[in-house]
Design a protein around this nucleic acid. Structure first.
Length: 947
RNA sequence: GGGUGCUUAGCUCAGCGGUAGAGCGUCGCCCUUACAAGGCGGUGGUCGUAGGUUCGAUCCCUACAGCACCCA
């Protein structure tokens, strides 16, 4: 083995071998255990969030596979309608073209081409982080099978009356020219103004003043609303107002929605361009007036002078005209939430358009069939309320149910070209025909179409196809084998439905509504089953200061840069490459140079994964600190060197295969039985933490065992045993070293697969193991290891003795290289026996001469002492230690213990404590005071002897 | 405005009713033959503030402050 751990060398070789061996595919044996990968954007790249989430999934999958489960990690990518179309449109823009220059078919072809080029980027990156996913079943949301599922679901829901077409207010992106989902809209706080505008009351001297952040929308006002109990305006309700700048009159209406205390208590109502106003308009049966075109320019419903103006130009014009008319009462600065499209940065304009919706809100349809609430929403709510699906951490269930309780119908149409085209046709009279194709649509119609049929231009929301992911990837709705777009068989529902429900969904909280809930809805409706039993909501990865990672801040990290390392200059170049605004570029460069003055060191995949595990508590964010990752690289190196030590100590005369003969019978030494006991405990903890998804505790348990017990104590204890005269103990220790190392490799494998595999390959022959890969080994079960409490007590005693000596050496500044005398006094029979048993270990590890007992009554030389129980462990002062220093040290120790005793006495002296505290707590407290007193007496005796 | 979290050592975080913990950093001594990415030993915290419940509160309850995020 190399002298130190070199991640790059070992990571490159294992992944391909694992994949080629078929180890990532379901074994076909054991209980099914399935995890669905939240499909990343097909043209996307791996970011820290992906790397974290996928590490979590990979740990679970590898663990369950080792436990003998029939494991499927279903992977694939998402066509990400808007994002992908936008990228290709940007490419066209460079050539000074738009998608319309190409036409629909040629454009879509071009997107496919781009998908072919870049589609494997993220999946190859996933391989770098070691994802043990079944790539032979990789799917794409637009492959033929998944498209068939989309079509069937649309048609079935349409025919069940659960999908309808309607003219509704939606989030409209005027730049992209499509409706977008709420998820793609960010509410951003911006500096704006609050303008107060006077609306005169018709036939009166009175007027009403409304406050608005969007004065231009007044051109579409249909009313002014006040609170029904607002006495100031009660007499005006029902009266008409003159809408300034127009020749229209609008009524004053009363509605609870209005906040009396906000502004003047009068609200202008523009139903066509505001969601709240839309609801009020509906309540009061006021027809909305749309005043913008789809490009957000003023349309013909507004007075002529404003027509054709962009919404912001219109605002200026409206304000100027109001000012001129003396109707602008006040202008003051105001912070407001502006809805901004995540995809184009354009300000969203609520817009009345014809869209397709999934009904999620009506109880019963007009014809008596169940409505969407009954058929789709309620079952999804029940699945979580009944506990059929549980969230981890559990409070996310509240988020889920609250959202479903207030759900709106789902707008599923998008005005894009890239996506699943809606299987609906219109005749010349505007009648709708839905079917698999035009012929099927005609066939299923109740009336003959008028004239020619034309297919709907729109495509479906990407989430519509991802909602079907849990069952469409398993082959539904086909009965036989399903092929992907390359013609390879990837699923077969008849066989694969055993993987439904999947075991756990690992995903971010931000898509609970948009994806998680919709998967539950669709899967429940079409298969009658829940899509998964548990939902583990993973934390969001932030930078070390807790800031959101963003390219424009310059605090993003590329997981591959952490794995491979990167020099400063390339890192700067990379971070600033796609930033267009010069100021941002400077800021980013400064930040990168400050944060990584020496670039990023290569820490390797395993250390990165261990870091993710160690940070994965139930907290909702994890702040990624590169320092921490470096610490876990050191851990990998520690493990590496521990393995080196074990292998270096194997006999030369091992068998033909390198096998080290297993001794018959139980391990000989206390140390072996102790480390096996600790291994058993650790494995038990790890199993527990896997069940509760506490990867931080899991990682810590393994870290502590490996470093603080195996390396710090057992390997050290093994040294004298291996080199001692007891050949039986040496042989036994040698074998235990191998067994413990091999077990810990197995236990660590789900977290750090590469290094463990690499080491295991060298260890396996020594144990005559026949598997080709660590991946094929079973999980090291705690139940298979014997515990030995007596041995544990012996080793605890030994550790106390050794620590006592080390502390004296260190505090008295005795050179670690110097061998010193060791004296023992007092103690009981068991101390005598233990000293005899561990004499060689004590001498070796504490660098002392053979211990010498001082019999009671004989004179003691002046010495520094440590106390273990009643035993005094002493190092003579002569030539080594300053008497004064030792007295000071003792005094400090004595006063520390006196404080502890005082605390105990305080509790035990309280009658209420003794009467009310649980018996075992009182007993424990009494035991503590006894132990402290024992130590105190020994220390005092020692102090007295020093004079 | 409604909701959900968070506030513990210099930093990043565990703990959550009965002796305050880890990693990193820091200080001292050591290049001891698995590992200086290391060893050994230290230092460092009235657990956001104020009340309450309890024999006992970092942990439970209430209020407040600050910081996040989600939904309006």
């Amino acid at each position: 083995m190399e002298k130190s751990f070199e991640p790059a060398q070992i990571e490159s070789k294992w992944y391909e071998r694992w994949e080629a061996s078929g180890a990532f595919q379901p074994s076909g044996k054991g209980e099914p255990y399935c995890i669905l990968l939240p499909p990343p954007n097909v043209t996307g790249t791996l970011h820290m969030g992906h790397a974290f989430q996928q590490t979590v999934m990979d740990m679970l999958v590898r663990y369950q596979r080792m436990r003998g489960m029939n494991t499927l990690w279903q992977v694939g990518t998402d066509h990400a309608g808007i994002a992908t179309q936008k990228i290709v449109e940007n490419q066209l823009a460079v050539e000074d073209k738009t998608r319309h220059d190409l036409g629909r078919d040629a454009f879509v072809e071009r997107v496919w081409k781009w998908k072919e080029e870049s589609g494997s980027t993220i999946t190859n990156q996933m391989r770098r982080i070691g994802a043990a996913a079944d790539w032979s079943r990789e799917r794409f949301t637009m492959d033929p099978g998944l498209s068939a599922a989309v079509q069937k679901v649309f048609i079935d829901w349409y025919r069940a009356g659960l999908i309808y077409r309607g003219n509704r207010l939606v989030n409209w992106d005027p730049v992209l020219g499509t409706a977008v989902s709420d998820l793609e809209v960010n509410n951003v706080e911006r500096d704006g103004h609050m303008w107060s505008i006077r609306y005169p009351v018709v036939g009166s001297d009175e007027s009403m003043v409304v406050a608005t952040t969007r004065p231009e929308t007044m051109l579409g006002d249909v009313a002014v609303a006040v609170h029904p109990e607002d006495e100031r305006y009660a007499h005006l309700v029902g009266k008409m107002l003159m809408l300034p700048l127009t020749d229209r009159l609008v009524p004053v209406i009363a509605d609870d929605y209005v906040d009396k205390d906000f502004g003047t208590g009068c609200v202008k109502i523009t139903p066509a361009h505001d969601f709240n106003d839309y609801a009020i308009g509906q309540r009061h049966k006021l027809a909305p007036i749309t005043i913008f075109t789809l490009a957000a320019k003023v349309n013909d419903n507004a007075p002529e002078k404003y027509r054709g103006l962009d919404r912001y130009d219109a605002r200026k014009r409206v304000l100027a005209d109001l000012e001129a008319a003396g109707l602008l009462v006040e202008t003051k600065p105001h912070k407001l939430q502006v809805p901004v499209s995540d995809r184009s940065d354009a300000v969203i304009e609520p817009m009345l358009t014809d869209q397709w919706f999934v009904d999620l809100t009506s109880d019963t349809l007009a014809d008596g069939r169940p409505g969407g609430r009954q058929a789709i929403t309620q079952p999804a709510l029940d699945a979580v309320r009944s506990g059929e699906i549980t969230f981890v951490p559990e409070n996310w269930a509240t988020t889920y149910t609250q959202w479903l309780d207030n759900i709106q119908d789902w707008c599923i149409s998008r005005q894009l070209w890239w996506g699943h085209r809606i299987p609906a046709w219109y005749d010349e009279a505007g009648n709708i025909f839905v079917g698999e194709d035009e012929a099927d649509a005609r066939k299923s119609a109740t009336a003959a179409p008028v004239g020619a049929l034309r297919q709907d231009d729109d495509v479906l929301d990407t989430w519509f196809s991802s909602a079907l992911w849990p069952f469409s990837t398993l082959g539904w709705p086909a009965n036989g084998p399903v092929k992907n777009e390359r013609g390879e068989v990837v699923a077969n529902w008849e066989q694969d439905k055993i993987f439904l429900p999947s075991a756990v969904l690992v995903t971010g909280f931000d898509i609970i509504f948009f994806w998680v809930a919709r998967m539950v809805m669709a899967t429940k409706y079409f298969t009658g089953q829940v899509p998964f039993r548990e939902v583990y909501i993973n934390a969001i990865v932030r930078d070390a200061e807790g800031q959101k990672m963003s390219k424009s801040k310059g605090n993003t990290l590329d997981p591959l840069d952490l794995i491979d390392g990167i020099e400063l200059e390339p890192l700067v170049a990379k971070s600033t490459k796609s930033l267009l605004i010069p100021q941002v570029r400077e800021k980013v460069e400064k930040r990168v140079r400050k944060d990584y003055p020496d670039g990023i060191p290569a820490i390797g995949t395993d250390a990165l994964r261990f870091t993710f595990a160690a940070l994965a508590s139930y907290s909702r964010t994890i702040n990624f600190d590169i320092k921490r990752a470096e610490g876990y690289k050191a851990f990998c190196n520690k493990l590496w060197n521990a393995a080196r030590f074990v292998l270096m100590n194997m006999p030369d005369e091992s068998g033909p295969e390198g096998e080290v003969a297993a001794p018959t019978g139980a391990p000989v030494t206390e140390a072996e039985r102790w480390i096996l006991t600790r291994l058993k405990q650790t494995l038990g903890e790890v199993e527990k933490h896997f069940i509760s998804y506490r990867f931080d505790h899991l990682a810590q348990a393994l870290y502590e065992f490996t470093w603080n017990e195996l390396c710090d104590w057992f390997l050290e204890l093994a040294k004298p045993a291996l080199n001692g005269e007891d050949a039986v103990a040496a042989a036994s220790t040698r074998h235990t070293l191998l067994v413990v190392l091999e077990s810990v490799l197995r236990a660590l494998h789900p977290v750090i697969p590469f290094i463990t595999e690499e080491i295991w390959q060298s260890v396996a022959p020594k144990l005559a193991l026949t598997e080709n890969s660590l991946m094929q080994r079973p999980w090291p079960c705690a139940d298979e290891i014997a515990a030995d409490d007596a041995a544990t007590a012996e080793i605890e005693w030994f550790k106390n003795v050794l620590s006592g000596i080390r502390k004296i050496r260190s505090e008295m500044n005795i050179s670690p290289a110097r061998t010193i005398p060791l004296l023992l006094a007092d103690g009981d029979a068991s101390d005598r026996a233990r000293v005899a048993k561990f004499a060689a270990q004590i001498a070796f590890l504490a660098r002392t001469e053979a211990p010498q007992w001082i019999e009671a009554g004989t004179d003691e030389p002046a010495a520094a002492a440590a106390v273990v129980g009643t035993l005094r462990v002493m190092i003579p002062l002569a030539g080594l230690i300053d008497l004064g220093a030792e007295k000071t040290r003792l005094a400090k120790e004595i006063s520390r213990i006196e404080v502890e005793i005082k605390k105990c006495e305080g509790k035990l002296g309280n009658a209420n404590f003794v009467a009310n505290a649980p018996a075992e707590v009182v007993v424990q407290e009494r035991q503590r005071i006894t132990d402290w007193n024992t130590t105190l007496m020994a220390l005092r005796e020692q102090a007295q002897k020093l004079g």
